[in-house]
Simulated scan of single mutants.
Amino acid sequence: MPQYDNTIEGETRRVHIREVGPRDGFQNEPETIPTSDKIRLINALGRAGLKRIEVASFVRPDVLPQLADGVEVLRGIDLPDDVARQVLIPNSRGLDNALRQREYFDEATLFVSASQTHNRKNINRTVEETMGEVRRMGKRVVDEGLRFCAVVATSFGCPYEGRVPPERVLDLAEQFAEAGAMEIGFGDTTGMCNPAYASRFFAAAIERLPGIEVTAHFHNTRGQGLANAYAAFEAGCHSFESSFGELGGCPVPKGSTGNIATEDLASMFHEMGVDTGLDLGRVIEAALDAQATLGRKLSSHSIVAGPVAWSPRDRGRSLPC
């Protein structure tokens, strides 16, 4: 299994940002988004420099009607060859359906909630049942030559059970690694994390998961999303998930607002001198297009303020401390 290096060597400062808006973001929208609009927006994100995009889900259409056109979207998008297309898979039946479309995607994500209650409400199974199936599904994913990604939801707290012990979260992560996962994301599903905890947790996760890409997935439900991302970065995490326009949330429970905005995350890192590989202007354009398509104001700060516009004499200078 390829080993992931969680360190930043020398003067190189770079993070990897995966866009999850076309799945995690769209699924929370109450009005059906036309397939053609989804395809246009995903193509725009690919032109903005994003190298990994979560495009679709193989959850049952009656559970998430908004994503029922996932196959049509996968077949219709036109992304650069170096952009990986990712799909979310809830169970073995979903994997069966996904593999019928194998030629249209590159990465598969399996997931579990660290909270028993959230896992039952989300996919109607116990955590143990889910992880038993993960071991079988993981082998199939790897055998298909797909990149096996994993997500532990409610890693930083559950709206039903409260605090989630970090040992439980890291134990599940290790089970995913044993099943063949190359990347493990930790989801702040309902925005319950804080920067101090993010710092401690990601330092521990990176130490416990050598050779695994450790990814942070924060929501901005309580306005701490970017602060948490910064804390995770300082702890050694250099892989993040975000959603353009700050789209998203969690269908279970209601009121769980969106992921941190891709354009806000990229803007923060750019101002810190950290490379994202993204064309921030194009990401903002895609978010503005999403706002117009949905017909409502989105929560992203950058689509209102735009990129930081330094005067010519300030460009390239370090800010005073």
Rank of each mutant, 00 (worst) to 15 (best):
residue 316 G to A: 11
residue 2 P to T: 12
residue 295 G to T: 13
residue 184 I to D: 06
residue 273 G to Q: 11
residue 204 A to I: 04
residue 213 E to H: 03
residue 303 I to K: 03
residue 250 C to N: 15
residue 251 P to F: 05
residue 156 F to K: 02
residue 139 K to E: 15
residue 33 I to F: 06
residue 148 F to G: 02
residue 125 R to T: 14
residue 165 P to V: 12
residue 123 I to H: 00
residue 138 G to I: 07
residue 156 F to Y: 15
residue 101 Q to G: 00
residue 9 E to M: 05
residue 148 F to N: 03
residue 302 S to H: 08
residue 214 V to W: 01
residue 18 R to T: 15
residue 104 Y to F: 15
residue 149 C to Y: 04
residue 69 D to K: 08
residue 128 E to F: 11
residue 151 V to N: 11
residue 55 V to H: 01
residue 304 V to Y: 09
residue 201 F to G: 02
residue 292 A to P: 00
residue 149 C to Q: 10
residue 219 H to M: 08
residue 289 D to V: 01
residue 297 K to A: 15
residue 230 Y to P: 00
residue 153 A to S: 15
residue 66 Q to S: 04
residue 150 A to D: 04
residue 134 V to G: 00
residue 134 V to N: 00
residue 284 I to T: 06
residue 206 I to M: 07
residue 248 G to T: 09
residue 64 L to Q: 06
residue 203 A to Y: 04
residue 191 G to H: 07
residue 277 G to Q: 13
residue 260 I to Q: 01
residue 304 V to D: 13
residue 100 R to H: 09
residue 261 A to R: 07
residue 289 D to H: 14
residue 276 T to A: 13
residue 228 N to T: 02
residue 177 A to D: 01
residue 232 A to L: 06
residue 87 V to W: 01
residue 194 N to T: 10
residue 130 T to V: 11
residue 187 G to L: 05
residue 104 Y to P: 01
residue 44 A to C: 04
residue 56 A to W: 00
residue 69 D to N: 10
residue 105 F to V: 10
residue 30 P to W: 08
residue 260 I to C: 03
residue 242 S to M: 10
residue 88 L to T: 09
residue 184 I to A: 11
residue 162 G to W: 08
residue 275 D to C: 10
residue 204 A to Y: 01
residue 13 R to G: 09
residue 205 A to E: 09
residue 150 A to N: 06
residue 267 S to L: 12
residue 277 G to L: 14
residue 183 E to Y: 04
residue 110 L to A: 08
residue 275 D to M: 11
residue 101 Q to K: 04
residue 199 S to V: 00
residue 77 I to E: 01
residue 282 R to C: 05
residue 17 I to H: 05
residue 297 K to M: 05
residue 174 E to H: 11
residue 63 V to P: 00
